[in-house]
Nucleic acid binder design. Structure first.
Length: 658
RNA sequence: GGAGUUGUAGCUCAGAUGGUUAGAGCGCCGGCCUGUCACGCCGGAGGCCGCGGGUUCAAGUCCCGUCAACUUCGCCA
């Protein structure tokens, strides 16, 4: 018999009854009943209940076992009585009566329990990651990750891509993030860098004529972490294609991503149609370049309704250059309580607050009834094209100057034949909806009605307003949109919604220094080529795109700039002279001078995709050995101090902390 | 670097308004138990209430500072 096992802990069933078997695994849980005791024996594959009673030669030893001890047991498979079957586990129809036991790996008292779903501090979990990984959830997440990567790889091969590895120790490539540097022993004072992405290498692979490349590539960036961003390193499905345009790249990657989400998405709905949304529209509608389209709320510009209005804050604001008022519609959010809560949310996010309007049924004052009746009859008669003479006599006169004014304007509109306008004024003042909230009072019924119509809102709905320079409130507006969608239950559950965000601007202006710099990837081809670079840099768009899914950026890519002369010009606009470009990207620029094919590609964030598929909120839950928030590996003790010998070899000295 | 939240037993957490000896569940240790599968029952150990200072007759509780963790802004091809 094999030294450790004849079967795994997931294999045995009724058909094995009577057989003598050997199992190895961890002592998951012990249930000691005095004369009989049970152990759940666990391995990677599953769990089997083993038992011993006082007649068993192993009884004494088994009584002393502690949780997580690794043991080998020999025993006899017993079919369980119907009343004793455990339907929760696949091996629940049998149990193994232990005749011999050997401790293979004793275990001390645990800092973290493997069974149960008790929560532990991250610090403990990361220090004892190997224990945490034994637990069901992480074990499952890591297996999911492994299968996702295999599926991606298979799909890529299936679509004619070939896989190549690129260097890990390489040259610095100033693409935005901070580099991890590696000191060179052979060249004291010089440093290698770990690649932030295999960007230049994959472009060179295209120049080398391989046509379609992919790689499951590690990427290294020395930036602060976020819940969806690992510090230090992460993995991408990196791909590049020659002789393609933007839509060709989309067509290549969509089946891979969609396929993986369908395969591992646990039955969630997966979008088959991925809309293209411009960066500008995405910012306006969703307040972010990675919108969550499960949330149906679409924001809108409503400046015109506030310009010159009685709402002084916004009216004044709009007199400044570049300001706008934007609306976040909130269908079903029409209560004072909800509106106040969202206003508080905006204040917590650092804004002065959000103005709001909400609509409810209008209770018409009896003193207004006459006017309303008059107008209703007058309008409906007018709309039918019949003479309106004599209607005034059938109703007593309106009761105030203000009402007179409204009435006269309706009558005037009708006489000009502008029935639409007449109906609008009528609705604004006497319609069945009453607009509540301070904003409505200040801008008056007609501007309020115009906003309501623009946004398609009705009874029980609300709308929130934000004003100023869009760059300053857009992101908060986006978060408010998310919050509103969530609170009102508008955001669809159990679905993955995708969209390509396209037409990213090539450049942006630093609001403080006024300096023009690349807003995204400097290697992208500007739309319109060389000519486009002659005008206003801030208006130049790139062939650059992201794929957004449920509020996360999961793919990013571009059609590359493969023409040296356009590249020099593009860099010059951002203030990089030709010499510097040649200095920093010499290898690539040179390559482009010897026949470079038009090419483009993208990279998909594997960690984030698995995170979405595993329904996890934190990327550390899908990484085998993650760093903590301070980029430390608590288990391995990294970073650590080098030995003096190492420092001498590298000719390095650390300056003391100030 | 800025902001928010949290910090009480090994772990998860409870401890209104300041007031006797700081509690529960899980885990751990000891005992009982031959059908459990989150076994049950009895008993026990285990606390610088993150740390420092202050207010007060009295501080886990209020104030100031500080440290740590997480989240977030900046940053992020």
């Amino acid at each position: 018999m094999h030294a450790y096992r004849s079967h795994t802990c997931a294999e045995l069933n009724k058909a094995h009854a009577g057989e003598t078997v050997r199992l190895s695994g961890w002592v998951h849980r012990v249930r000691d009943h005095g004369g009989v005791l049970f152990i759940d024996l666990r391995d990677h594959y599953g769990m089997t209940q083993v038992l011993a009673d006082s007649d068993s030669p192993a009884f004494k030893a088994i009584e002393k076992l502690k949780a997580e001890t690794v043991v080998r047991v020999d025993g006899r498979v017993k079919a369980r009585d119907a009343s004793l079957v455990n339907s929760k586990i696949p091996t629940g129809e049998i149990e193994v009566y232990v005749t011999d036991l050997e401790v293979l790996g004793p275990a001390e008292e645990l800092p973290l329990l493997v069974f149960g779903d008790q929560e532990y501090p991250e610090e403990t979990r990361l220090t004892y990651r190997f224990l945490d990984l034994r637990r069901e959830k992480l074990h499952r997440n890591m297996m999911l990750r492994s299968r996702v990567v295999k599926s991606m790889r298979d799909r890529m091969w299936g679509s004619g891509f070939t896989e190549f590895q690129t260097p890990i120790i390489t040259a610095s490539s100033p693409e935005g993030a901070r580099d991890f540097l590696v000191p060179s022993r052979l060249h004291p004072g010089k440093f290698y860098a770990l690649p932030q992405a295999p960007q230049q290498f994959k472009q060179l692979i295209m120049v080398a004529g391989f046509d379609r490349y992919f790689q499951i590539a590690p990427c290294f960036r020395d930036e602060d972490p976020r819940a969806d961003r690992s510090p230090t390193d992460f993995y991408q499905l990196d791909l590049e294609m020659s002789f393609v345009e933007q839509e060709d790249v989309f067509a290549a990657i969509q089946p891979v991503i969609q396929g993986v989400f369908e395969e591992f998405g646990g039955g969630h709905k997966v979008d088959a149609v991925w809309p293209r949304i411009s960066y500008a529209d995405s910012a306006l509608w969703y307040g972010t370049d990675k919108p969550d389209l499960r949330n149906p709320i679409k924001m809108a510009r409503v400046s015109e309704h506030f310009a010159g209005s009685g709402f002084a804050i916004f009216a004044k604001l709009l007199e400044q250059e570049g300001t706008e008022i934007r609306a976040i519609p909130a269908p079903g959010g029409g209560s004072r309580k909800f509106c106040d809560r969202m206003n508080a949310f905006a204040q917590k996010e650092g804004l002065p607050g959000m103005g709001y309007i909400f609509w409810r049924k209008r209770g018409i004052d009896s003193s207004l009834e006459n006017t309303r009746d008059f107008l209703t009859e007058f309008l409906s008669t007018a709309l039918k094209g019949q003479p309106t003479d004599g209607i005034a006599e059938r109703h007593s006169a309106p009761s105030s100057d203000e009402l007179d004014e409204v009435k006269n304007r309706i009558v005037a509109a009708v006489s000009e034949g502008d029935f639409e306008k007449a109906k609008f004024i009528q609705d604004a003042h006497f319609g069945h909806l009453d607009a509540a909230g301070p904003v409505a009072k200040n801008i008056g019924p007609e501007r309020t009605e115009a906003i309501r119509r623009q946004l398609g809102l009705g009874e029980g709905d609300a709308v929130f307003f934000l004003g100023g320079h869009p760059a300053q409130f857009e992101a908060v507006a986006g978060r408010a949109r998310t919050e509103i969608g969530r609170e009102l239950g508008l955001t669809e559950q159990n679905a993955f919604r995708f969209a390509w965000i396209v037409d990213f601007p090539m450049y942006e202006k630093d609001p403080e220094t006024g300096k023009i710099d690349f807003s995204h990837n400097p290697f992208s081809m500007p739309q319109g080529g060389m000519e486009a670079l002659d005008g206003d840099p801030l208006k130049v768009l790139g062939y650059q795109y992201d794929l957004a899914c449920n509020g996360y950026e999961i793919v990013s890519g571009a059609i590359r700039n493969h023409r040296p002369e356009i590249m020099f010009r593009a860099f010059a606009l951002a203030g990089y002279p030709k010499e510097e470009v040649e200095n920093r990207f010499g290898g690539m620029v040179k390559a482009f001078k010897f026949g470079a094919p038009p090419h483009g590609g993208c990279a998909a964030g594997i960690d984030r995709i698995v995170m979405l598929l595993a329904d996890e909120q934190n990327i550390r839950e899908v990484i085998m050995f993650p760093m903590n928030q301070r980029a430390e590996d608590l288990m391995m003790g990294a970073p650590s101090e080098p030995t003096n010998q190492q420092m001498r070899e590298l000719r390095l000295r650390v300056t003391p902390k100030e």
